[in-house]
Design a binder for these strands. Structure first.
Lengths: 112, 112
DNA sequence: AACTTAAGAAACCTTTTGGTATTACGTCCT
DNA sequence: AGGACGTAATACCAAAAGGTTTCTTAAGTT
C-alpha cells in the first residue's frame, strides 16, 4: 500500500498563479532542464527564473537534483493531482456527464 | 452549435491562488449568497471580502446580480474548465490510465 | 420622516511578489 | 594554476496584494 501524504494545496495553487511559472512547467514536460536552460526561454535574468523555480519547488511541482555544477529541474506532476482533486469538487456543477463517468470508472478500477 | 469563447486563464488562476477565495467558492456551491452573508463566514471585514469577490468576478468564477440593495453572488464553475484543461496537459505524466479512459469515453460521446 | 442596513468608494498601511544588480563560491576545462 | 561557467546569496526596488478604516449612497423598515 502506498502511503499517500496529504498535503495542503496552498503552495501549489500559489505557484500556478504566475504565467511564467506555468510556462516553465509546460517546458519541463519535454525534458529536464538546468536553470540556465530554463532561463534561455524567457526574457528575464537567471536570478528571476531561479526564484520562480524555487516557488515551483515549494509547490512540489518540480524537483531539483544537483548534477555537477548544474541543477537539473524535473517536472513533478503529482502535485497537480491536488489541484485536479480540488477542481473536481465542482464537477457536478459544470458537467454532470463527467461525474457520472468517473464514478463508473472508479468501480472498475477498485474491485476490492 | 455553442460558440465557446476561449479566454486566457490568467485571471482565473490568480483568483484561485488565495485560500479565502477558494473557500468562498466552496461556500457558493450550496447556494447564492449576498456579500454580507459571505462575509459572515470569515474573520475579516466586509470590505476585504468584497475585494475577494471582485477578484473572483474578474476570474469569471462568480457572477454578481443586484437584487434590491443586495448583491447576490453566484458560482460560475465554467471558468474551472479552463483550469481543468490546463492541468490535463500533464495527464499523461501522472496517470496514464486516466488518459486512456477519457479518450475511450470521448469516442462514445462524440459519435459524429 | 427617521432609522437601519447593504453595499460602494477611497485613502491608507504592511507584507509579498517579481524583478534587478552585484558579489561570492564551486565545478569544469585547458 | 588559471579562467570560464553555473549557480547561490544578498541587497535593493517598484508594484501588487491583502487588509483596515472612514465616509457616502441607496434601499428597506417602522
Amino acid at each position: 500500500m502506498q502511503t499517500h501524504q496529504t498535503i495542503n494545496p496552498q503552495s501549489t495553487f500559489r505557484a500556478l498563479a504566475d504565467p511564467t511559472r506555468r510556462d516553465i512547467l509546460l517546458l519541463l514536460r519535454a525534458k529536464d532542464l538546468s536553470i540556465a536552460e530554463v532561463a534561455g526561454n524567457f526574457d528575464m535574468t537567471r536570478a528571476a527564473v531561479k526564484k520562480h523555480l524555487r516557488v515551483l519547488e515549494e509547490g512540489r511541482l518540480i524537483s531539483v537534483t544537483p548534477q555537477g555544477r548544474e541543477r537539473i529541474n524535473h517536472l513533478e506532476p503529482a502535485a497537480l493531482k491536488a489541484v485536479s482533486d480540488w477542481v473536481s469538487f465542482f464537477d457536478e456543477f459544470w458537467d454532470a456527464r463527467l461525474t457520472a463517468l468517473s464514478s463508473a470508472i472508479a468501480k472498475d478500477w477498485n474491485p476490492e
